[in-house]
Simulated assay, not measured.
Amino acid sequence: MQLQRSKVLVTGADGFIGSHLTERLVAMGVEVRALVLYNSFNSWGWLDSAPSGVKESIEVISGDIRDPHGVRKAMEGCDVVLHLASLIAIPYSYHSPATYVDTNITGTLNILQAARDLGVSKVVHTSTSEVYGTARYVPIDEEHPLQGQSPYSASKIGADQIALSFYRSFSTPVTVIRPFNTYGPRQSARAVIPTIITQIASGQRDLKLGALHPTRDFSYVDDTVAGFIRMAECDDVLGEVVNIGSGFEISIEDTVRLIADIMGVEVRIHTDDVRLRPEASEVERLWAKTKKAEHYLGHVPAYGGVDGLRRGLGKTIDWFTTPGNLAHYKTHTYNI
């Protein structure tokens, strides 16, 4: 499938990954409709900061993924749906789990029902590496058992299974992309890399963090976006789940040290108990096996390995340390 010949709906286009994806699609010459969360400020989220050429090229619809009528209206006339809209903050899922069921599971169901009825050519549904829970073996392939260790991850497991069930039950053309820990410019400070960078950038040298020993497979946002586009274009992954990651794991503590080295500072790390997950909820190890993405999509991460991580972190640090960008973040507040 050639996206340049398609009309593409991006849900969650106002968010971190969604805004980057929208910009990339516009640069490719794709006709894009962006679904953003309705709010009284008429904010388009990160799309408000997009170049004027991007904003002039897209059709923006404000709505709510939980509203089946609004979702259907947003999808009318679209050939491809890249479904990213969801609640993703793990700490907030402990506080308000019902909102995660409504947004992530019911919201995905609304997309699938409309796609089935409207005859959409393809739906790319966004999963997360959190659905695997703590790795039982590494690297983690797509056959790894699923384990909901937080209400967030449980809701994403439910959403993934609903999506795959529509493929199996109704031949709805669904594919599931499973990004590992995406990072980059515009990411929320609820994530660890922006938390580290913004604390340092605001002058702090005594950093407040959660657990330091878990490992993560950090994927730079450009690689994740490339994975989305290749998933949308590939006709051989319908009904399939595909991991998108760097194929490299690093501990949180070593990530802190790497960021501090790039930023040329010395830091002290303090464990802030409020930032710790409940013991059985912490995902101890994530490391993606990316052979399936390479085989089906021809996707090889441009920012893989420690050298790629250093390059991606450098770009991320450059963005966050720009005063106008840093001003978006409350660096002395714990973001759940």
Results as ranks from 00 to 15, higher is better:
N243H: 15
V241Y: 00
R257G: 08
L118H: 10
H328K: 15
G298H: 09
A89D: 13
V123P: 05
A288N: 04
L47K: 12
G70C: 08
D261V: 00
T22Q: 04
S40H: 10
R5H: 14
P301W: 11
I262E: 07
T195V: 05
S251C: 03
A85R: 05
H69M: 10
T172W: 03
E240G: 12
L258H: 08
E76L: 15
A159L: 09
Y167P: 03
L286I: 13
G77I: 10
G148E: 05
F180T: 01
V300P: 08
E282M: 14
P214M: 04
S155Y: 08
D307M: 08
L207S: 10
F320M: 12
E279G: 00
D223K: 09
H144I: 08
Y183R: 01
H332L: 14
R311G: 06
D223V: 03
I196Y: 06
V192M: 13
L3R: 02
L209S: 09
S202C: 08
Y167I: 06
A89N: 12
S86W: 01
S281F: 02
V101P: 02
G239P: 04
R24G: 04
A115L: 04
D160N: 12
S121F: 02
I317K: 11
F228Q: 01
H332G: 07
P145H: 03
S96F: 15
L87S: 06
L9R: 00
R216G: 13
I58V: 15
S121E: 15
A115H: 02
E31A: 13
T316V: 05
D222W: 01
D217M: 09
S153N: 05
H95E: 14
D79N: 14
F218H: 13
V101T: 10
W46D: 13
A260K: 12
V26W: 03
R136E: 15
M28D: 15
F41Q: 14
S129T: 09
V174G: 01
D222F: 05
G70S: 05
R268D: 04
T108R: 04
R216F: 14
Y92E: 11
I193W: 10
K7S: 13
A211R: 14
L87H: 11
V242P: 00
H270N: 13
H332D: 15
G12Q: 01
A189M: 09
P214Q: 11
H270W: 08
L118W: 02
V32F: 03
A260C: 12
I317S: 12
F16D: 04
T182R: 10
R66D: 00
